[in-house]
Simulated scan of single mutants.
Amino acid sequence: MNAHTDLIDRYFDAWNETDGARRRELIAATWASDADYRDPLMAGSGHDGIDAMIRAVQERFAGHTFRRSTDVDGFGNRLRFSWELLTPAGDALVKGSDFGTVDAHGRLQTVTGFLDQVPAGA
C-alpha cells in the first residue's frame, strides 16, 4: 500500500464515520487545516466545513457508505481515484471520480469531485 492509498482509505473512513468526535479526528489526520473540497453539489473548506459537509451527506443518505472502487493513482503531490456510494443493501447508488492534491505533510490539500453516475431524477 502506498502513502496515497493509505491517505485515501482514511478519507473514506472519515466519510463513513458517524461518531462526530471520531470523524473530526479522522478529518484532522487526513486533511490540511486550510483544505478545500468541491464537487458539483457541495463544497467545504477547512476542517469545520468538511465536517459539516460530510455530516449533511450522512443525514441525507443515512445508512449508506462510501467505498473506493479503483486503485489510487498518483504522482508527486497529485492523485486520483474512483468511488461508490452504497445503499444499505450494498447497491451502488452514486459513482464518482475525485482528483486531489497533497500538502507537504502528506495530508489532503484539495479534492475536486466529479459525479460519474447519479440516480435518475437526482
Rank of each mutant, 00 (worst) to 15 (best):
T70L: 07
T18E: 11
L79I: 12
V102W: 07
V118N: 04
G113S: 04
T18Q: 12
V111N: 08
F75D: 12
R80P: 03
S69M: 11
R24I: 03
D91Y: 00
D13P: 08
G96E: 04
W83P: 11
V57L: 14
N77G: 13
R78I: 12
G121I: 06
A28K: 01
V94C: 07
G113E: 07
F12L: 11
A21Y: 01
E17M: 08
G113L: 08
F61A: 11
R38L: 15
D71C: 11
A43E: 11
D98F: 05
A62G: 14
R24S: 10
T87I: 04
E17K: 06
T101N: 10
D48V: 04
H64W: 02
R22W: 03
A56M: 09
A62D: 08
V111T: 12
E25I: 07
T110C: 11
L115K: 05
L86Q: 01
Q58Y: 07
G90D: 03
L79A: 11
F99E: 00
F75V: 12
S82H: 08
G49Y: 01
L26N: 01
F81L: 15
Y11H: 15
L85Y: 05
Y37Q: 00
D98K: 02
A14L: 09
R24G: 08
T112N: 08
G46L: 00
N77R: 13
A120S: 13
S82A: 14
A29I: 01
A43Q: 09
V57E: 14
D98T: 05
F61K: 02
A43R: 00
Y11Q: 08
T87C: 02
R24H: 08
L108E: 03
R78C: 09
A89R: 14
V111D: 03
R24Y: 05
L85E: 05
Q117P: 08
T87F: 06
D48N: 10
E25S: 13
T18N: 06
I50N: 00
S69T: 15
F66P: 07
D34H: 11
A52Q: 13
V111I: 15
G63L: 07
G100H: 04
D9W: 04
L115R: 01
R67C: 12
V118A: 14
A28V: 10
A92W: 07
D98V: 12
T101I: 04
L115C: 09
F75Q: 12
R23E: 09
N16D: 02
R67P: 00
F99W: 03
Q109C: 03
E17S: 12
L85P: 00
G96Y: 01
A89N: 11
R22Q: 14
L79S: 01
D13Q: 13
L7H: 05
D36L: 14
P88H: 09
L115A: 09
D103L: 02
V102K: 04
D34F: 05
